[in-house]
Write a protein that binds this DNA or RNA. Structure first.
Lengths: 163, 163
DNA sequence: CTAGATTGCTAAGGAGGTTAACTATCGGTG
DNA sequence: CACCGATAGTTAACCTCCTTAGCAATCTAG
């Protein structure tokens, strides 16, 4: 006799006493905002969210479709499609790997780099400006908090593959 | 003569000097972890990510399809499908709105509430434990940082609809 | 009471993912 | 050196979920 129907709501918010911390609430808000931002940027660029993520990865050096598949958490079959689309848009090119005959290196083109930066710079700018308004020790605290939160989420994901 | 080919990478990381802050890097990591977590939880529950989000919204009270559509950032047509699926799974029921003849109230069933909690509790537990290891003032700092970051992202999204 | 806005739905179509199956190459082992 | 398991990449068929377009019912303001 202490579980349901505490208030007048059908059942509502009884066994969910967590998330009262302002930090946890803000974490939810930022995660939500980022998801919407991803869709918005992708739509603006006329690309899919996966393509944006792939272009970001390629901006740090060439990758093969299989490696992109792992970064995007999709199958290699889907990664082939992503690379196809990036190439069709002229944002990337396929090149045979110099040493390994199985592999294909996907390189970002100048067009791809420009497109990517044009769409990401404004956000990075805003975020960097906001970041700069904190002291170094505050940033360290935030980083510690977020790294721990990411670790907690990854731990939960890892329950699927206990191997 | 100072732009490309700084190192040996084709071009790589020149005009992207931001993201050096540990807080910003951690923010990227946590956003990435959350996206993967969402897919994992949805797959475990045999539901789509949209359904999980919708169930979460319904856990705070009944909503109509149109309201869910706004929360999920999808069209009302898609929301109809989400509600159809939740009802088919027995996690929700449609009820006519008492006063407004156009509306339908979607209510979470006990089955839906149990399913939702069973999948979300472990994560909430880990996150709450992590959160509890910080002082109140640290949590306030984190919240301030994240709220600002979310605002920056929303500001960028809002450029689409300047009206 | 009418006009416009809002809610919810259906139908048709598309984008992007999955599974399954196949080829080619690499790298280690007997 | 010949084989063999592992890895990279692709294709084909399929499926899920979202979109656009259009409609009917109801509410609300003038």
């Amino acid at each position: 006799m202490s579980q349901h129907t505490v208030g007048q709501q059908p059942v509502g918010g009884d066994p969910r006493a967590q998330m009262r911390s302002p930090a946890l609430q803000a974490l939810r808000a930022v995660v939500r905002a980022d998801a919407e931002l991803s869709r918005t940027i992708a739509r603006r660029a006329g690309l899919s969210p996966s393509e944006i993520t792939a272009l970001e990865a390629l901006s740090r050096g060439p990758r093969g479709p299989a490696e992109l598949a792992r970064l995007l958490n999709v199958t290699t079959a889907a990664a082939t499609g992503v690379v196809d689309r990036m190439c069709a848009h002229g944002h990337a090119v396929r090149r045979p790997h110099p040493r390994d005959g199985r592999r294909t290196e996907v390189h970002l083109t100048d067009s791809g780099r420009i497109e990517l930066l044009a769409h990401l710079m404004p956000v990075f700018g805003r975020l960097a400006a906001h970041d700069a308004s904190f002291t170094e020790s505050e940033r360290a605290t935030v980083a510690r908090y977020l790294d721990g939160a990411a670790e907690a989420m990854q731990a939960e994901v890892a329950r699927d593959r206990p191997t």
